[in-house]
């Protein structure tokens, strides 16, 4: 168990450095999509919710687990879809005209 914690700490610290390195020089234009993208990635906590709902007994704890799964899934799906829509805007060819009726 101690080994697990130690391993976790290693992984955690290395990932922290990696996270900082990865987005060190991102242009301001991409800050919003980046925030939205990382927002989707922390939806990974859905996994925790699944494991909890899959292991608890009793109505109350199952209810808490279920709510957690719903919220976690909403974080994941909503996060990736919103980010994709933002980035769609960047991909569109400049001056393509046409679609004037934006949302």
């Amino acid at each position: 168990m101690d080994n697990d914690v130690l391993l976790g700490a290693y992984v955690f610290l290395l990932a922290i450095f990696l996270g900082i390195e990865l987005i060190g020089r991102v242009p301001a234009t991409l800050h919003t999509p980046l925030m939205s993208g990382t927002n989707a990635i922390h939806g990974i906590v859905l996994l925790g919710a699944m494991l909890i709902l899959g292991s608890v007994d009793g109505f109350l704890l199952e209810l808490i687990g279920f709510v957690a799964v719903v919220l976690g899934a909403a974080n994941v799906f909503g996060g990736f879809v919103v980010t994709d829509r933002m980035l769609e805007m960047f991909r569109k060819k400049p001056g393509a005209g046409g679609a004037r009726q934006g949302k």
């Binding site: 697990d4 391993l7 976790g8 992984v11 955690f12 610290l13 990932a15 922290i16 450095f17 990696l18 996270g19 900082i20 990865l22 987005i23 060190g24 800050h31 980046l34 925030m35 990382t38 927002n39 990635i41 922390h42 990974i44 906590v45 996994l47 925790g48 494991l51 909890i52």
Partner: peptide
């Protein structure tokens, strides 16, 4: 939960989020 995927993804977001 002893789940490294959570640790990695969470730490990535925690770090990049602070920098952002």
């Amino acid at each position: 939960l002893g789940n490294q995927a959570l640790v990695v993804a969470g730490a990535l977001v925690g770090a990049s989020g602070s920098l952002l």
